[in-house]
Write a protein that binds this DNA or RNA. Structure first.
Lengths: 149, 149
DNA sequence: GCTAATCAGTACAATACCGGTCCTGATTGA
DNA sequence: TCAATCAGGACCGGTATTGTACTGATTAGC
């Protein structure tokens, strides 16, 4: 149904929580309680975000996580790709040799263009935008997406 | 990884084949051979497309399928939704009551807006666009996509 | 140092979904 | 009537996702 995984969804929730207090280090357990998610799941998501460089992790007592970048510089597409890997609408959109039909496929080029369009539209939405919307504030403007090259 | 299902991919392939000869009725077996897909799979996809009203089906001997609409009026999003159901980036983007976190979720409104943006971008790409791109079988353009493991 | 808190990494079970197949019945042209 | 073809299910195996558990490494504070 063309949806992101639950883990990606959780990741955005956690990122919004971190963004609410950008300079404070919050532990995984603390974030889990605030978001009402299972601690092990939260730990897994945060680890992926840390690997992608979106959050900084601090070990040891009083350790935890903190945003690694300003909220205006983190886009949705970075969060999704941190959790799920590179976005591609079809297998062949991401790398070659994954599809046995590649040599006689009529729709590969269009799909690659479509993937690019989706990525572009997602990259325009930043963490700051989500944060601004969260207090049930009415979404001010629609997001205009240009597709045709 | 935010991708469409293989069945949706197949659906676009079949739609492009049908679009190449819009007035001719082509049987499922014929389309399967042309697209080098398994006949039962093709039959399943065509049935879904027929249910969605994107193709007309004709039973009996010399029966088969034909586009139900002009190529300029069929968008990618219609094809995807015919196969996978309504598009929504998260469960709660499509209908309520699907997520136990709904009452205390911070990111529901943003996700709904994001889903809308993706749908809008996909709706701008029509079958005619895909068809126009296909004859130009892209020579080995090096679309190297970096995978961060 | 010692201890407790916390992250890092791996492994693993349960579940759900997807892809693919098959079967039976209904419809239609020859 | 007969053969070709679609319609509508049921069905199964494989894989990804989800969630959990365990062990080890690192750090702050006493």
């Amino acid at each position: 149904m063309l949806k992101v995984s639950k883990l990606s969804d959780y990741a955005t929730v956690l990122m919004v929580r971190l963004a609410a207090e950008p300079q404070r280090v919050q532990s995984a357990a603390e974030l889990a309680e605030a978001a009402r998610l299972e601690p092990p799941t939260v730990a897994k998501v945060l680890k992926l975000l840390a690997t992608a460089g979106l959050v900084d992790s601090f070990r040891g007592a009083a350790g935890g996580y903190r945003l690694a970048l300003p909220v205006a510089q983190i886009s949705i597409v970075q969060i999704i790709e941190a959790i799920e890997g590179p976005i591609g609408m079809t297998e062949c959109s991401r790398r070659e040799g994954q599809c046995s039909h590649e040599s006689h496929c009529d729709v590969r080029a269009p799909w690659q263009r479509i993937s690019g369009a989706v990525v572009q539209s997602l990259s325009q939405i930043r963490l700051a935008d989500m944060l601004a919307e969260t207090p049930a504030r009415p979404p001010p403007s629609d997001i205009a997406i240009q597709i045709h090259a």
